[in-house]
């Protein structure tokens, strides 16, 4: 039999985790993603009891989370449910909307600080052209990171997530790793 053991976006059998001083970067291989888009004239749903956030925002609740990706469009996140057919669950919860499976299109990196917001803001300043000071907890946006398109989510004061194209996982890791290592050297 062919060995069909799954590998992560970075190619390992286990998700990669690495610490750089106060910052730890972890590949999040278990995050399920589904995009949700309103059809013309449709009312905004409340899928699984989660109220969908407005432009530039991220909102968690009931074990899932959502962030705004464009007018009438959101990405729904479900930690730990990457092996489920999560899109089907979302579709059931919002049958009037267009729902598309995105888990395997993207890959997520969770960045945590053990020294509060400072290292997170310093890392953002190195990586993305977003006003980090105005990008408080609950903010989420799509932007460019070393010419790659990524979603950046401030999950908490000391937590940042970067979600990018799965095929670019290695390049995104390299960018995060390089910036974090340089901060450590500062």
């Amino acid at each position: 039999m062919t060995d069909l053991a799954p590998i992560t976006a970075l190619g390992g059998s286990l998700a990669r985790v690495q610490s750089f001083g106060a910052l730890a970067i972890a590949e999040n291989a278990d995050l399920a993603l589904a995009s949700l888009a309103l059809r013309r004239g449709a009312a905004q749903p409340v899928p699984m009891g989660l109220s969908l956030p407005g432009p530039g925002l991220w909102h968690a609740g009931n074990g899932i989370a959502a962030f705004w990706t464009g007018p009438g469009q959101w990405m729904i996140e479900a930690p730990g449910r990457a092996t489920e057919d999560f899109a089907a669950v979302v579709k059931q919860a919002a049958p009037e909307c267009s729902v598309t499976e995105q888990t395997d299109a993207f890959t997520a990196f969770e960045i945590a600080s053990t020294a509060g917001a400072g290292p997170i803001l310093a890392l953002m300043a190195k990586l993305v052209n977003i006003d980090a000071a105005a990008f408080g907890p609950g903010s989420a946006t799509r932007t460019g990171l070393e010419h790659m398109s990524v979603f950046v989510i401030r999950r908490a004061e000391d937590r940042l997530a970067v979600i990018g194209m799965r095929s670019a996982a290695g390049s995104i890791w390299h960018a995060l790793e390089t910036a974090a290592a340089r901060l450590q050297g500062d």
């Binding site: 432009p55 530039g56 007018p71 052209n129 105005a134 946006t141 932007t143 460019g144």
Partner: peptide, 10 residues
């Protein structure tokens, strides 16, 4: 109009 000041490079 929705997201505030953004770099033209985006």
């Amino acid at each position: 109009p929705l997201l505030g000041l953004r770099d033209a490079q985006e």
